[in-house]
Structure formats: structure tokens, C-alpha cells
């Protein structure tokens, strides 16, 4: 069995803690709007201030995502995106960058279809550093969470405002890597992050776990990043970034010359909000 040994997430969070700063996580969907453009955006992210990359594995039925990420998933699939190509992009990215953690985010069906053991082997060999599989709650840990744990590959858990403390114990049981706190009750990209509630929730999570805490859903501006990184170990921006991609496309949904730069400038602006940077 291939084991994960790179520990890029652990190294990142230790480094940030020693510098008393937090991380910016940027979500993009693999292959949105096409393979080459998406790869160039991905490769440009670290230089613009993204500390980790949430790399969306496109799926036809993204149940927990709002309109922006649904559309980006659709664009990626229409441009020929697939799980295999997502892993190819991770491999190519790793040829030049060996430090920025990549967390693969997505839904279980393409993984199940690919084969769980084969998937884990290829994920580790390609150089990804963790998994977030939205539709695998603790009730289904035997599917992928436990097999990932056996390979030492981080399996990140989501918690939400509706997660009770009783439930939290179950959710955190097999959690590794970091905790992803979903800041709003709803789907990605629809509402603004409610800072006060998040502050309480993050404090509560810290009482239950030593893992780093990332906050996502509803973080749209540099100000949001500033507020969230003051209280959490990482802020994750998704919908806003894929919207930036969408807004630069031509009438046929194809990338224009400015697509890459416009998207990366947004990331630079967001990164300027990170506490201590």
C-alpha cells in the first residue's frame, strides 16, 4: 500500500503558527474553464499569496454547492474534465511546486467509480495532500475515510452551524489535516460570512480539537479574509474566485487572454487581507 509521507499541510500550519499568521486557501475547479487555463491559474496561485489550494474534482451533481461552483463544475466537464485529468493536473503542478498543499474536494461517485484503492494510490503518487469528500459523513467512514487514514492521507471533515456538540464528537473522531468550518447554513457562495457566529464557533471547535481550523463558505472580500484570519487558521475562498473566471469568459464560455491574470489579481487582493502578512 502506498503511504502518504509529504505532510505539506502539517508543515504549512506549523510554519504559519510560528510566524503568527494564518493561511489563505483558494478553491478552483480542476479544468475550469479548460485544462490549460485552469493549470496556469493553479500554477500562479502560490505566488499571488494562496497558501493552499482546494482543488475541485468536477461532478455532474454538486449537491452542496451554490450556482457559482455548480457552473464551474459544468464548464470543466464540458471542456472534457474528469477525475483522471484532475490527477494529471496535480502531477504537472508538482513538477514545479513541492510545498503548496493541495486538497482534493468533491463528491464520492467519481471516486467510487474510479476504485477507492486505486484512487488513494494515485492521489498520493500525484502529490495531493488531503481529501474533502462532501457526501461522506462519519456514518460512511468505511468507504474512504478509514482507507485514507490507513495510508496516512488527511481526510478533512466539515462542521456547520447546525452541528451540535454531541454530533461534533462523532464528526471529529476520524478527522485529520484540519477542520473545515462551513460558516453558513446553506450552500457555497450564497450569503456573507457572519463573523460573530464564526468567532464563537471557532472558539468552540478549538475546545474540542487541536487540529487547525479553516473557515469557508461566504468569504468574498479582502475584508472578510482579514476578519476570518484573525480568528481561524485559514480562510477559504471559492465561489468568488470561480466567479472571477466566469466573468472573463467570452460568449461561448471560452477563456480570454485576461482570464488568468484577472483571476490571479483577485487572489492577490484577497491575500493582502490575511492577518500578519
Amino acid at each position: 500500500m502506498t503511504k502518504y509521507t509529504s505532510d505539506r499541510l502539517k508543515i504549512l500550519f506549523e510554519k504559519l503558527r510560528s510566524k503568527d499568521t494564518s493561511a489563505l486557501g483558494i478553491f478552483i475547479t480542476a479544468g475550469d474553464p479548460d485544462f490549460d487555463t485552469s493549470l496556469k491559474i493553479m500554477e500562479g496561485l502560490p505566488e499571488e499569496g494562496a497558501d493552499m489550494i482546494e482543488f475541485g474534482m468536477p461532478f455532474s451533481d454538486p449537491m452542496a454547492d451554490g450556482p457559482a461552483i455548480q457552473a464551474s463544475s459544468k464548464r470543466a466537464l464540458e471542456a472534457g474534465g474528469s477525475l483522471k485529468k484532475t490527477l494529471d493536473m496535480v502531477r504537472i503542478f508538482r513538477e514545479k511546486n513541492n510545498s503548496t498543499p493541495i486538497i482534493l474536494m468533491g463528491y464520492y461517485n467519481p471516486i467510487y467509480n474510479f476504485g477507492v484503492q486505486k484512487f488513494l494510490t494515485e492521489v498520493i503518487e500525484a502529490g495531493a495532500d488531503g481529501l474533502i469528500v462532501v457526501d461522506l459523513p462519519p456514518e460512511e467512514d468505511e468507504e474512504l475515510c478509514i482507507p485514507a487514514k490507513e495510508c496516512n492521507l488527511p481526510f478533512v471533515r466539515l462542521t456547520a452551524p447546525t452541528t451540535s456538540n454531541e454530533r461534533l464528537t462523532t464528526v471529529l473522531q476520524n478527522a485529520t489535516g484540519f477542520i473545515y468550518y462551513v460558516s453558513i447554513t446553506g450552500i457555497t457562495g450564497t450569503k456573507d460570512v457572519p463573523i460573530e457566529l464564526v468567532t464563537h464557533a471557532v472558539q468552540n471547535l478549538k475546545e474540542h480539537s487541536n487540529l487547525p481550523i479553516a473557515v469557508g463558505f461566504g468569504i468574498k472580500t479582502r475584508e472578510h479574509v482579514e476578519q476570518v484570519t484573525r480568528i481561524a487558521d485559514a480562510a477559504i475562498v471559492g465561489s468568488e474566485v470561480v466567479n472571477a473566471i466566469a466573468n472573463t469568459l467570452d460568449a461561448n464560455g471560452k477563456a480570454k487572454p485576461e482570464t488568468i491574470q484577472t483571476t490571479l489579481s483577485l487572489v492577490r487582493d484577497l491575500a493582502a487581507g490575511v492577518r500578519g502578512k
Binding site: P137, E139, L158, R167
Partner: peptide, 22 residues
């Protein structure tokens, strides 16, 4: 009790939905 018919069924939903499902 976990909703499995052999390998089929189950509760494959986002954690955000789990409190409602429970």
C-alpha cells in the same frame, strides 16, 4: 439500522444535512 440493504442505501449526504437527517 444505518439504512443499508446489503451494500446499497446508506446516508451519503453533506455534514450540513446530517443533523436534519438524524
Amino acid at each position: 439500522e444505518n439504512g443499508h440493504f446489503g451494500i446499497f442505501g446508506g446516508q451519503y449526504v453533506a455534514e450540513t444535512l446530517m443533523p436534519l437527517i438524524i
